[in-house]
């Protein structure tokens, strides 16, 4: 079974040379730490930076330089700053190659819910609705089940949707799955996780064809 760092590490393998990548808040942010250093990748943060670098050294924080999670960051050589409309032109115009974000629920059709729990939590969608409605290549990073142990891979989402039929791939603490027209297609198992465990933790349709390898 993977922890959040393991999930981030596995997703980092999906980041290819030449990609512009938008990372959501939470586990997705960790992905940047595991991307191969021999490829050229630029991270976009929707508040207005392309070429985002690591956190600043202590004492070098700049209040005018943050990411979408409001964390202080740095800019790498070749970085650029821009306004919010330009930022979402990059996203909506499909110039960003890969979007990685967290979710509360994903349905077998690729619907995603991650912005609101009616009556309990309303933080807002931020840029998530623009990202999921526009991106061709969306990977969801999340735990397979919620804190109560209920599956987050469902037939239909029960929470208010962020987007419809948009998620392509899911990496959880248990598995890597593609969203296909037939449902969640199991591609890889996390280390020491059995197919039975994955079946038990998945409420939506699960497609299992042939041998399912353990993640490398």
């Amino acid at each position: 079974m993977l922890d959040k760092f393991g999930i981030a590490k596995r997703i980092a393998k999906e980041v290819k040379n030449g990609y512009y990548v938008n990372l959501g808040i939470g586990i997705p942010t960790l992905v940047a730490n595991f991307v191969r250093t021999d490829i050229e990748v630029e991270f976009q943060s929707e508040n207005g930076i392309l070429g985002m670098g690591p956190f600043p050294f202590e004492g070098e924080e700049d209040a005018d330089l943050i990411n979408a999670g409001k964390q202080t960051i740095t800019a790498l050589p070749g970085a650029s700053y821009f306004d919010s409309a330009t930022s979402f032109s990059m996203i909506r115009g499909q110039h960003v190659d890969l979007t990685i974000l967290g979710a509360m629920e994903v349905s077998e059709d690729g619907d995603i819910a991650n912005w609101k729990i009616p009556g309990r939590m309303v933080k807002g969608m931020g840029g998530a609705m623009d990202l999921v409605a526009s991106a061709d290549n969306i990977i969801v990073a999340m735990m397979h089940t919620n804190k109560a142990g209920a599956s987050k891979l469902l037939k239909h989402c029960s929470l208010p949707l962020t987007g419809v039929r948009c998620v392509k791939k899911i990496v959880t603490n248990l598995a890597v799955l593609d969203v296909t027209k037939d449902g969640f297609k199991l591609l890889e198992r996390a280390p020491n996780v059995s197919i039975e465990q994955i079946k038990a933790a998945t409420d939506g349709r699960l497609v299992i064809e042939g041998e399912i390898p353990e993640m490398i």
């Binding site: 929707e46 919010s84 979402f88």
Partner: peptide
Amino acid sequence: PQGTLAERCRAAQAGFPAFYTPAG
């Protein structure tokens, strides 16, 4: 949605009454 908010501002600035977006 954040991109919709930005574009609703830009539309007002640029004299467009409305626009279509996939967001939401």
